[in-house]
Amino acid sequence: MISQEIYKYFADFVFKKTGIFYPEKDFYRLDSRINTMMKEFRCDTPDDLYQMFLTKKTEQMERFLIDICTNNETYFFRDNKPFDALVNDIIPQLQEIYPNQTIQMWSCASSTGQEPLSIMMSLKEKFGDSLNFSLKATDISSKALKKATDGVYSNLDVQRGLPVQLLVKYFESVENSQWKVKSELSKHVSYSSFNLLTDIFERNKFHVVFCRNVLIYQNPENKQEILSNIYHALKPGGFLVMGAGESLIGTNIQLEQKSLSGCMVFQRPKE
């Protein structure tokens, strides 16, 4: 039996750390996670686990909890259109506003790396080596980041959304029917940890921010706060790309909504 007090402790903890919200009616969704932690930290009962968190919580325990509470679902070229819009519209438009500048991009919930790698492949296929750019990829989940930096994907991973022509071009097969991304692609991506809720955003830095399928887990206040930070992280004229069906509705963010290559994107006014 897990007491309300324990549920509440973990729900509050996760909310404070990540913004991911478990309302009381969804407390049961913490059951399997509490069980997973009991196994990991060798606790016999939920009360033991609770006690351990109260008295000798380590950073590793916090990281583990965050890992199991985040949904890292992702796949290559998810929704397709954003990647077309990026190379066909967004980058050419940015090159007009910012001629000869390195295009700075950020995938701010990059999970296990499929999104930044899809960006990379799109750029390589379209521009070869002629484009000057940098790509930063961040996530809150250390487990997801570890897989992203290893760059090793299962047979199933590489069949989700990735055309086989790009698989054989940009990945090499390694042991256990796995595939490792080649360094010509991965060397351009710099991965690091970043918590959208609590970490400090750079300002006026990025030409493009991909923020997809992460704000859906946030309440309206946090969503407003994060989007406002992203607004200021963008350069004037810079673009925000969100997930299919995501929008600025419910916020007062002054980004201009545009349809490019059939994809809804959001541009910071050029001043």
Binding site: N155, L156, Q159, R160, G161, P163, V164, S177
Partner: peptide, 18 residues
């Protein structure tokens, strides 16, 4: 295209689609 066994129904659907 190329499907490696074992695969899921989702993979089959999306590969046929493309």
């Amino acid at each position: 295209e190329y499907i490696m066994k074992p695969f899921t129904q989702d993979i089959l659907v999306s590969k046929i689609d493309t």
